[in-house]
Write a protein that binds this DNA or RNA. Structure first.
Lengths: 262, 262
DNA sequence: CGCAATGTTGATAACAATCAAGCTCGGTGG
DNA sequence: CCACCGAGCTTGATTGTTATCAACATTGCG
């Protein structure tokens, strides 16, 4: 089975070596093929509410697949906006860069999630999207998507829903960044990853962090040392097990209490 | 001239007594009248890119106007989602409440800005919208808006643009909350208000804060004491003048440097 | 006039950042 | 195959920023 298809399966077999960019070799033609209608993400991706007819139609506009190597950019801040991207496999971070060269991670994006929404407004990407591991995406030309949305009520509705979901997620993060202690932020972060993995059909309790401690810290507004210390403490307190990037949630309930039911 | 129409004019005459809910008396029928086509916000509100024909059509669906008294809610967290709201005059805060009863302000919304976008996703409001002063809104029934968007390309485009703009704004705030010092947050907050006032045709350098220090602090992830101290310091350093809720920006350039060109 | 809400300012304490040292795991080259 | 190297991670000591606690000032309103 090709990794591209990203069928739900125990995480340990998928990400045996999370750090290596070369371990998983993909058939070169894989990036250009699989249609939405046969994609295992069709249940969680943008076209998820469409009927068979509309799905076929959607396949017509979302033909371009792209392979992005670990560390490479899908698009850069300042690039003109033409397409939204759906993550088929792998993971991305979106990064803003200040003129001083400081980087700030605004989000992590797993399979089935959409990239580029923030650019609709200005017609230009405000952030860069960098692959955290070798990844595949579908490009969805926005002009065509808009046109199709006009003809297909379910698609327009779904598009608005997805965008609105992004706003909710961002607002949740604002809450997190604006009013939580370091401890609460880490707990919320772990729970968020857990939930999103579950949505993809993976285990909610065991998963692999695709990002470094530094990237987590950057995202959460903490230093990497604080992230490391708290992960260690959570392990001491038997809330989780951590071993490098492998995480097991052992006491989700306590973590939820920590976050405080926002 | 009725306050409802919110024509651009020097702020001092509009908000003579920002704290009073009773000073500005409005003709009772005012809330039910003015059409988009004659509204002075038509340049900055949702229908801003529409032609005269579409504008008239839009007027048909955005007929319901509502008056919200200072301190009252436009909608509550948990309410079913039916309409988006455009702020015609006044100002709102959106507030999330945890089960512990802690409140967190996720945004402030001035005239011409849209409320309720985050609810599209779930069909239920995740936050409450509370008026910071006596305010007027237009209700835009979402089902009808979606229907009209399918027929009017410019409207669909504009709707997506506005929603995307919301995402950008939120991500900007995340940046702010996640990686700025208290000093930078206050500076960024003042600049943001300045920019938004200017967009409405008001002075960019003099405006009135519609919210308390506590609300500012809550929004920015700071305590009210820190907000107060920093405003005092900025005044000592002649970056601004503050006098209760009246603010004058005296050195926007230095404030921008402070924020660091994100 | 007096009260309640809001805002200011000072003293102290807590939390997370910074600085610093050393560890671990993978990859690479001898 | 082993030794070394470096990125990433852990842990400790110290510092700094901001929260917290507290007292008091100001404003608007009844």
């Amino acid at each position: 089975m090709l990794q591209t298809v990203a069928l739900p399966q125990p995480f340990s077999t998928v990400h045996v070596k999370a750090r290596s960019a070369t371990v998983i070799r993909l058939a070169p033609q894989a990036a250009g093929t699989a249609a939405c209608s046969s994609c295992c993400l069709k249940g969680v991706c943008l076209p998820c509410d469409l009927g068979q007819r509309e799905l076929d139609q959607f396949d017509q506009i979302a033909t371009a697949k792209r392979r992005v190597a670990r560390g490479a950019s899908l698009y850069h801040s300042g690039d003109g906006f033409e397409s939204l991207y759906a993550v088929r496999s792998g993971a991305f971070k979106t990064v803003g860069t200040s003129r001083q060269g400081d980087e700030k991670i605004t989000g992590f994006h797993l399979s089935g999630e959409l990239l580029g929404l923030e650019a609709i407004n200005t017609g230009r990407h405000g952030y860069s999207a960098v692959a955290l591991e070798d990844s595949d995406v579908c490009a969805i030309p926005f002009a065509q998507l808009e046109r199709m949305a006009m003809a297909v009520p379910a698609l327009q509705h779904q598009l608005l829903r997805v965008i609105s979901g992004d706003i909710s997620r961002d607002q949740g993060l604002m809450l997190l960044l604006g009013s939580m202690s370091a401890e609460q932020r880490i707990a919320a972060f772990l729970l968020s990853l857990s939930r999103r993995h579950q949505r993809l059909g993976y285990s909610a309790s065991r998963f692999v962090l695709r990002m470094t401690r530094e990237e987590i810290g950057n995202y959460l507004g903490l230093t990497l040392e604080t992230v490391s210390r708290l992960l260690s403490r959570f392990q001491r307190e038997e809330l989780i097990s951590v071993q490098q990037r492998e995480v097991e949630i052992r006491n989700a309930e306590r973590l939820r209490e920590m976050v405080g039911h926002w």
